[in-house]
């Protein structure tokens, strides 16, 4: 009984707040156009309902424009984002890690991305496996979250709202892929970053809350690829929209279904039933021979 009352109330609240937000957003938008009418250049951005829209460049190039926490819960309409990792191309260049750290203002000790040295058995050859959040369709972390601080959006992205997270770390225990990191201490204040927090940017970090790879929805909204994709020198990482059946690594664009079919795409630990949205292509016909990493490689790649 109480539950239904709560539901109705929260629905009304939600309706009111989102309505108010839209109104506020609209007025802000028009004010923006007035003040920056001098600029004529247009860029393409992806709106919340998934349409590509041309807007004033000056508007987009602002230093920060994080979407509200309410909008960040809804996802980009009509899209379902996926990533493909071609293991045959990875040589542990670690550029994805450094660009991700830069974009999200995260220190080295809690990266959103890891490049793991994998070896399936003694006889098989080792390979490098870039791993980030799999944005599962049956996400264990979202299931166990007591407060809905981590949530799944309609576009398949799983985000964390660090202003709601209570720091119970149940999601970290639940994630079979160890994708989540925790702010055990007070995180360093990012330099030259004065933007408001949004779950879509995952920055600035907050003490006592969980974080993870967010698929860079702030970039996606501008119809740009996530930082890790564009920074990879070897085209290992592909990103795209499953519903459009296309993924791109920035250089080439291919049909997702064809790529998975022709190269034997698989999902890691399929048997767990988590339905990941990150696919892997097996490390066959490799671009680079496997080379062990030493300390110097890491420090070099971080320069």
């Amino acid at each position: 009984m109480k539950k239904t009352v709560n539901n109705r109330r929260s629905f009304i609240q939600f309706g009111l707040t989102s309505g108010a937000l839209m109104l506020a957003g609209a007025t802000a938008f028009f004010q923006k156009i007035k003040t920056t009418s001098a600029s004529t250049e247009k860029v393409k951005v992806l709106t919340t309902d998934g349409k590509v829209m041309e807007v004033d460049k000056a508007h987009v190039n602002e230093p920060c424009h994080p979407v509200s926490r309410t909008l960040a819960r809804q996802g980009i309409k009509g899209k379902k984002f996926v990533m493909v990792v071609d293991l045959s191309r990875c040589r542990n260049a670690r550029k994805c890690i450094s660009s991700c750290e830069k974009a999200h203002n995260i220190p080295h000790d809690r990266p959103f991305i890891k490049v793991l040295r994998m070896q399936d058995n003694e006889e098989s050859s080792p390979y490098w496996m870039p791993k980030k959040c799999f944005h599962c369709d049956n996400p264990p972390c979202v299931k166990v979250c007591p407060v809905g601080a981590t949530y799944k959006r309609s576009d398949g992205i799983v985000l964390v709202d660090n202003e709601r997270c209570i720091g119970c770390r149940f999601c970290m225990s639940a994630c079979p892929y160890s994708a989540r990191v925790f702010n055990w201490g007070e995180p360093e204040k990012p330099e030259n970053y004065n933007c408001a927090y949004s779950p879509e940017t995952s920055t600035p970090s907050k003490i006592g809350t969980v974080e993870k790879c967010d698929f860079c929805p702030d970039m996606i909204r501008e119809n740009k690829l996530p930082h890790c994709i564009t920074s990879c020198p070897n085209g290992v990482l592909y990103f795209g929209d499953k519903l459009s059946d296309s993924v791109t690594n920035g250089d080439e664009t291919v049909r997702l279904s064809e790529m998975l079919r022709d190269k034997g795409g698989y999902r890691y630990l399929e048997e767990l039933g988590t339905e990941p949205n990150v696919y892997y292509l097996p490390p066959v016909n490799r671009l680079f021979p496997f080379k062990e990493m030493d300390e110097n490689d890491v420090s070099q790649s971080e320069i």
């Binding site: 007591p146 209570i166 720091g167 119970c168 006592g208």
Partner: peptide, 11 residues
Amino acid sequence: DMGRPDRFINV
């Protein structure tokens, strides 16, 4: 054990 006991009310 909570990282943010100040937010217990969120529960």
